[in-house]
Each structure stands twice: as structure tokens, then as C-alpha cells.
Nucleic acid binder design. Structure first.
Length: 210
DNA sequence: CCCTGATTCGC
DNA sequence: GCGAATCAGG
């Protein structure tokens, strides 16, 4: 067996997947290759993400012109332009929404905690322990990129109305890491409990829990 | 070059 | 079922 793919793992895959993370990113956090992620995702049936490419639908040579005619009559359906369902959906994450959601004018003081802050295990932490990486053909290059990415002001705008609370628990890249997974509040990426932790009124944050 | 996801096919 | 190899678009 190459991999267990336990319910737990699959759940995490689904979670990360729906969060709009790239296959490679998911793979890194799940400690598998992107190929594994893609492959599993396919088998799981989930895979509506915008694909950069559309592989050759047919092996060109296709039906030899001669007898192909008959075949075409019924089963033709040359996938030349089969999908009325185009692929507009932007790569979600790329959308780059404002870092600070327009909080209600009246209640402007909300401080998302699990941002790129100390206590928050964000994707930034992914750059950790490159030595443990089973693969990582090019740690240096990747590390550099990861670091650069980590420095970017925006490191988790990848939430696009998830169906599960994405409050991080544990350290990304480590076996125990996972997301809360509870049903999030409408318009919020976190469940009720974690939303309370995530959004703290500034005035009440005076003595926030460390 | 890098990235991305998609598909194939030996295991 | 799994995922490396390979493909293909940006």
C-alpha cells in the first residue's frame, strides 16, 4: 500500500480542497505528492476546480474516416465543444479579497486573530522542517518561494465560503494538524465557537487569552 | 523556467 | 485503489 487514505485524511483532503488550495499545497500539508492529491480527488469524485488545461479529448487519429462516419452518426459527439458549462470560476484564492472584510460600520472593531500571527498556524508554517519532507526535489527553491509567499500580506484569503470551519488545529504539515470542520457561521469561515476566537472586539481584547 | 491540474497506466 | 510519470496550458 502506498497510502492509507483514512477517513481522517480524506476529510482533510476534502476540506483543503474546498478551501481552494492548490493540489501541491494540499499535498504538502498532507504529506503526499500533488499527484496523489489529484488522483485521490478524482477518485473521490470531487474535482470541479478550474483546470488550466483540457487534455486532448480524443486520440486524434480517432476513427478512421471511412467507418467513422457510421460511428459518428450515433456516438459522434466530438467533444470539440461539448461543455456549455464553461470555466469562468476564477481560481478562488486568486481573487484576493480585501484583507479586512468591511466589518459593519457600526461594529468596525473585529480583529481576525488566526491571521499571520504568532499563535496562528497558518500555511506560512508550511515552510517548516524541510528535512522531513519525503520528497522535495528542490527544497531551496521551494523554500524560497514558500518564504516569499509567507511574507505576503495575504496568506489565507483562500476561504471561499467553506462548508466547514477552517479554524486550524495543530501545526500544518504535522500528522495531528486538522481543521475544526464544524459548520461555519454564514459569511464566516469559522464556526460559532471559533468565530468568537477569531473576531475579537478591540475593546474587549485588552486581556485576550494568550 | 516556474506554476497549475489531468490523464495514463503499471503496480 | 494508488500515485509516478507524463502530459498540457498559463
Amino acid at each position: 500500500m502506498a497510502m492509507e487514505w483514512t477517513e481522517e485524511t480524506i476529510a482533510r483532503l476534502r476540506d483543503l480542497w474546498q478551501q481552494g488550495l492548490s493540489t501541491a499545497e494540499i499535498g504538502r500539508q498532507l504529506s503526499v505528492t500533488k499527484n496523489a492529491v489529484v488522483g485521490k480527488a478524482h477518485r473521490l469524485g470531487l474535482k470541479p476546480r478550474p483546470s488550466p488545461i483540457r487534455r486532448a479529448a480524443k486520440p486524434v487519429t480517432a476513427a478512421p474516416a471511412a467507418e467513422s462516419a457510421a460511428a459518428m452518426a450515433s456516438a459522434q459527439a466530438a467533444p470539440s465543444s461539448p461543455a456549455p458549462a464553461e470555466v469562468e470560476a476564477a481560481p478562488a484564492a486568486a481573487a484576493v479579497p480585501p484583507p479586512v472584510p468591511q466589518a459593519a460600520p457600526v461594529a468596525p472593531v473585529e480583529a481576525p486573530r488566526p491571521k499571520v500571527e504568532v499563535t496562528a498556524p497558518t500555511p506560512a508554517a508550511t515552510a517548516q522542517e524541510p528535512a522531513v519532507e519525503p520528497r522535495a526535489p528542490r527544497p531551496s527553491a521551494r523554500a524560497t518561494r514558500a518564504a516569499a509567499a509567507a511574507l505576503r500580506p495575504v496568506s489565507e484569503p483562500r476561504r471561499r465560503s467553506s462548508q466547514s470551519c477552517c479554524w486550524p488545529l495543530g501545526d500544518p504539515g504535522t500528522p495531528g494538524f486538522h481543521f475544526c470542520g464544524a459548520t461555519p457561521l454564514p459569511g464566516k469561515p469559522y464556526c460559532a465557537e471559533h468565530a468568537q476566537l477569531a473576531y475579537v472586539k478591540l475593546r474587549d481584547r485588552r486581556d485576550n487569552v494568550a
